[in-house]
Amino acid sequence: MSKEYVVIPMGDPAGIGPEIVVKSLNKSTAYNDANLVVVGDRNILKKAAEIDKIDIKINPIKDLADGDYRPGIINLIDLHNVEMSTFEYGKVQAQCGQAAYDYIKESHRLCIEGGAAAMTTTTINKEALKAAGINTLGHTDILSSLTDVKDPLTMFQVHKLRVFFYSKHVSLRKACDLITKEGIKNYIHRMVDALHTMGVDKPHVAVAGLNPHCGEHGLFGDEEVKYITPAVEEVKSEGVDVTGPIGADSVFYQALHGRYDGVLSLYHDQGHIATKTVDPDLTVSFTHNLPYLRTSVDHGTAFDIAGKGIAREVSLDEAIRLAAKYASAFKYSQA
């Protein structure tokens, strides 16, 4: 069986993205499960290799079929869009924000038109994007705009724990206001569909509680009574294997140990804390409902250590591994 192509936008040149790309693609296992293509800038990757003291070949290509897919080789779509005379590590720079956006846009094109089945993203900086005149909250919003998918589904995976997010980059007050019965029902169905695509035959899912002790029947908040429990009961009557709401102080631990195939987190930090406490290095972000699979590292640009050769590539290794594992299923389920 032929390997799928996974495309990797290099990320903000001033961050650790280029360094972890070089480290990951130099490993003997890099191409075991997929053909990897990087979209970025040759000069920046060459500099990253020098910093990391890695002897890796950079192979500029025009099309995915031109690549030489072996460890120690970076098959690169070179956009050549960083002016090295003004480039600095660890600084917010408009040119780097624009470059990072361009890498994502070209990676998207390769997934839509060029034959790539999945995208694995590294790190971008929101301030750099803003300096370049790109008003976005990050990768998910960029990909949402490029694909016309208005509400992509975000999932984090670490070990056996899969966490889906009802809301993401909104205030805690607004996250509470967004809770509705129909909204909860919709997200339960969406997470079950996503798990089916990932090969989970009969998903057993859970919904986390919003309030302490799930509100204690209205004593500490009434969202569970008014919206969450009715939503769970209605979806259950439709044949979905769903449990909840379950207190957030226990449901993630239970899922980590196999009781549930997925958990719906009701706001950003609830699920982020749960997954990153388990293992921040191996937590991988998935974006579902796009025309292709997208996985991502779950850390930032780390401007404080960029250019020092000490960035760890473990999260990128895992994001690439999972993209390779699931790429075919997503490609053909959404074709």
Results as ranks from 00 to 15, higher is better:
185 K>Q: 07
17 G>N: 04
107 S>H: 02
77 I>K: 00
7 V>L: 03
231 A>D: 03
293 L>D: 11
293 L>I: 13
166 Y>D: 03
241 D>E: 13
193 D>I: 12
228 I>K: 03
186 N>I: 03
268 H>Q: 12
58 I>W: 00
235 V>D: 04
43 N>Q: 08
18 P>R: 01
68 D>M: 11
172 L>N: 03
279 D>Y: 09
335 A>E: 13
53 K>I: 12
184 I>F: 00
331 K>T: 09
199 G>M: 04
22 V>C: 04
10 M>F: 01
322 L>F: 03
181 K>F: 01
326 Y>T: 09
290 L>C: 05
154 T>C: 12
105 K>A: 09
240 V>S: 10
195 L>I: 03
59 N>S: 02
159 H>W: 13
113 E>R: 12
187 Y>K: 15
117 A>R: 11
294 R>T: 08
84 M>I: 14
258 G>R: 02
20 I>S: 05
181 K>D: 01
214 C>L: 05
246 I>D: 06
59 N>C: 01
331 K>I: 07
5 Y>C: 08
284 V>C: 07
231 A>M: 07
30 A>V: 14
273 I>M: 12
74 I>M: 02
288 H>W: 11
89 Y>T: 07
191 M>N: 05
63 D>V: 10
1 M>T: 15
143 L>G: 04
5 Y>K: 09
166 Y>P: 00
96 C>R: 05
38 V>E: 04
230 P>W: 00
137 L>C: 11
288 H>T: 10
40 G>N: 02
80 H>Q: 04
221 G>Q: 07
284 V>H: 04
70 R>A: 15
56 I>M: 07
208 A>L: 03
334 Q>N: 13
138 G>S: 07
227 Y>C: 14
69 Y>V: 06
105 K>H: 05
245 P>G: 01
277 T>I: 15
22 V>Y: 02
198 M>C: 10
115 G>S: 09
11 G>S: 05
